[in-house]
C-alpha cells in the first residue's frame, strides 16, 4: 500500500515537472536542456528556508519566485539567439548550479546534503503521512494542469505556438518574440520550482547529487514519450516512466547489481530518447488538429 501511495506521489510530482517543461519545449519550441536547475532552485530554497524555521507557506512562495527569477536571468542572454544557444546555456546552467550546491558548504552543507527537511504545514495542517501528502501533490497537480491549460488555450498560448512554428513570421506580424519566449521560460521555471518544493518536502533529504543531467533527461523523456505539445502527454509520460523507474527500485535485487543497474537504466532512457526521435517524434499522444 505504501508503495502504491509513493508511486502516485512521484508520478504527480513528475507530472508537474513535465508539464512545466512541456510549456517551454512542446508549445514554445524552446530547447531547455537544463530544466532540473529550476527544480533544484525550488527544492533548495524551500528546504533551506523551512530548516531555518520560516513558515512553509512563505518558503513556498519565495521558492517559486526564486525559480522564476533565475529562469528570467538565464533567458536574457540566451534567448535572443538561435535555439541551440539556449540549449547549451541551460545545459551548462544545470551543471553550474550543481557546482554551487556542492561548493557553498556554509549554505548547503555541500555534498553532505540537507537532512531533516520538515513536512509542509499549511493553515496549521501538517501533511505528514503518505495519504495526506498524496492529497497535497494531487491537488497541486490539478491546479498546475488547469492554470497551464488556461494559458495554452488562450491567445497567449496561441502566440507561443506560433513562435514554435515560425518566429520570423511572428516578428513580421509585430509580435515581440523575445518577450514571449521569456514569459514562457519564467512560467515554466516557476512550475518546475513547484515540483522541486513538493519533492524536497517529500523526501526530506536533498543533496547536490539529486540534481544531475539524469533528471533532465528523465523529464525530457517523459514529455517526449507522452507527446509534446499536448495537454495530457506529460501526465501520460510521467505515469509510464515513473511507474517503470520506481517499481524497479522496489524489486528485491542483489545490491551488487546496483553498480550496473543504474547506468543500464540510464542507457535505456537515452536509447529510448533516440529511438523516439527517429521513429515516433510525436510520442504516445498526437498533437490535435486536422493534420492528415
Amino acid at each position: 500500500m505504501d508503495l502504491f501511495l509513493h508511486l502516485w506521489i512521484m508520478i504527480f510530482i513528475y507530472s508537474i515537472f513535465a508539464m512545466s517543461l512541456n510549456l517551454e519545449m512542446g508549445y514554445t519550441g524552446l530547447f531547455n536542456f537544463g530544466h532540473i536547475a529550476f527544480f533544484g532552485i525550488g527544492a533548495y530554497t524551500s528546504a533551506l528556508l523551512t530548516l531555518h524555521q520560516i513558515p512553509f507557506a512563505l518558503a513556498f512562495v519565495v521558492a517559486l519566485v526564486a525559480s522564476g527569477f533565475f529562469g528570467f536571468l538565464l533567458s536574457i542572454p540566451s534567448l535572443r539567439l538561435r535555439g541551440d544557444y539556449f540549449g547549451i546555456a541551460t545545459l551548462g546552467f544545470g551543471e553550474i548550479l550543481r557546482m554551487v550546491f556542492q561548493n557553498e558548504v556554509w549554505l548547503t552543507k555541500g555534498p553532505m546534503g540537507l537532512p531533516g527537511i520538515p513536512k509542509p504545514i499549511l493553515f496549521s495542517y501538517r501533511f505528514a503521512t503518505l495519504p495526506q501528502y498524496l492529497l497535497l501533490t494531487m491537488g497541486l497537480t490539478i491546479v498546475t494542469f488547469l492554470i497551464l491549460r488556461i494559458i495554452i488555450r488562450s491567445p497567449l498560448g496561441r502566440t507561443l505556438r506560433g513562435i514554435r512554428e515560425d518566429e520570423i513570421v511572428l516578428m513580421a506580424l509585430g509580435k515581440n518574440a523575445f518577450h514571449f519566449k521569456i514569459k514562457s521560460v519564467v512560467i515554466g521555471s516557476v512550475f518546475a520550482g513547484l515540483a522541486g518544493v513538493l519533492w524536497t518536502h517529500y523526501t526530506t533529504f536533498i543533496s547536490p547529487g539529486d540534481f544531475t543531467l539524469s533528471e533532465t533527461i528523465l523529464v525530457l523523456l517523459i514529455v517526449v514519450l507522452g507527446g509534446k505539445g499536448t495537454e495530457w502527454g506529460p501526465l501520460m509520460g510521467a505515469f509510464v516512466l515513473i511507474f517503470f523507474q520506481e517499481s524497479l527500485r522496489f524489486l528485491k535485487l542483489p545490491t551488487e547489481w546496483g553498480r550496473y543497474l543504474a547506468p543500464l537504466q540510464q542507457m535505456i532512457f537515452g536509447g529510448l530518447l533516440i529511438f523516439l526521435m527517429i521513429y515516433r517524434p510525436e510520442g504516445l499522444i498526437r498533437e490535435k488538429g486536422e493534420g492528415r
Partner: peptide, 9 residues
C-alpha cells in the same frame, strides 16, 4: 538536438 542529447546520455 534531443536525439543528440540522447546519444550523449
Amino acid at each position: 538536438l534531443i536525439a543528440a542529447l540522447g546519444i550523449s546520455f
